[in-house]
Design a protein around this nucleic acid. Structure first.
Lengths: 200, 200
DNA sequence: CAGGATCCGCCGCGATACTG
DNA sequence: CAGTATCGCGGCGGATCCTG
């Protein structure tokens, strides 16, 4: 009984399923790994409880996510990643410096880093931003970045999310004073230079 | 004064601008070239006149389209093409055979062909579907497909949109009886084999 | 307290009629 | 041909209320 564009067209079919408000942002947040209802609610400021619950139901019915303990992307949902990156790249080009009151988080940067990976690094790293661990698995072809810790990483960076963001975004890659870097200096350099500072 | 996700994130910024209903479908239709108000209204079944007018105003204010005689994409609007293709590819994977009452047109196929181009052909063609001409300019890197005729093409195909669609979509590439092909047989073959029949 | 469900008010959207 | 005006509904936002 849902509203549909009713066109024999891939784009129209995609928008029939993921074109409604919040849906693609939920997928984006799940790209970093499974999340609980309360995690999604916290990391999607402005969404209401009823709408989040409704979206999750619809997405599960569409086969985009599945619920076990937490909500996680199915392979079909994960296949939205190229579209999310393409839209993100377009939106990034028109972004200005963050406005006051605009929501920021290291998780949002982590998603952007997934698409900015330059390739050809081989490295396992852990980045702990504001106490939340992220694991970076860089292979020749792609970067797997998600929440969770990484056993015996080549590099470990620990610090405030703000400083870590500056470290990854600033072309100069100067280590801020409040970031602790563990591991070989060459590996630290390899990690930081594996991602483009910008992507437009 | 519009509703915004208010997140420092490329995806959220993109959806702030093109996330509302119909917007990306309008961009898709303009990928084939400038269109007048009545063309858009006719080719977007279900949209209402007020909503089309409102969207066009918003898109012009955002710098995605510009209005002169007709509406045309700006470079910024054209930059949405990769995102549209990525979403279209995802949506195509879940498509079934066209349902009854579903809107179809050769123009929708033409957009899909833009993304299915296999590269490495060099060819100028004109395809006249149901009396409406489309020009195909295939270069090594990309396919430029739009409305309008093509002076002195290497190949010219004329016929009902339905038969032309079958010709491009069927792996066997058998020429239907009601399609007239002009040009060298090798060029006709080159045109048809330049596009993947499917894209998933 | 996590994980929702319920109620209400508004505005984005759909349908139709009308205008320069 | 290219829109504007009006109206009603449903999707969405805000707040509150269950329920294990």
């Amino acid at each position: 009984m849902k509203r549909s564009y009713d066109q024999f067209c891939g784009l129209a079919k995609a928008l029939d399923v993921v074109g409604e408000r919040w849906t693609l942002l939920i997928v984006r947040n799940l790209l970093l790994g499974p999340q609980r209802y309360s995690d999604l609610l916290r990391d999607l400021p402005g969404i209401t409880t009823n709408l989040l619950a409704q979206r999750l139901q619809e997405m599960e019915a569409q086969g985009i996510i599945e619920k076990s303990d937490a909500y996680r992307l199915t392979p079909l949902g994960l296949a939205l990643e190229p579209a999310i990156h393409a839209l993100g790249r377009w939106g990034f080009r028109r972004m200005r410096a963050p406005a006051r009151g605009e929501y920021r988080s290291f998780a949002l940067l982590a998603v952007a880093l997934r698409r900015r990976y330059r390739r050809n690094a081989t490295l396992r790293a852990e980045v702990v931003a504001d106490g939340v661990p992220y694991r970076f698995t860089l292979t020749k072809a792609r970067a797997e970045i998600g929440r969770g810790d990484m056993p015996s990483p080549d590099v470990k960076l620990t610090g405030p999310g703000k400083s870590l963001a500056r470290l990854f975004l600033d072309e100069k890659r100067q280590m801020p004073a409040d970031v602790i870097a563990e591991g070989k200096a060459s590996a630290v350099r390899a990690l930081l230079s594996a991602f483009a500072a910008s992507d437009d």
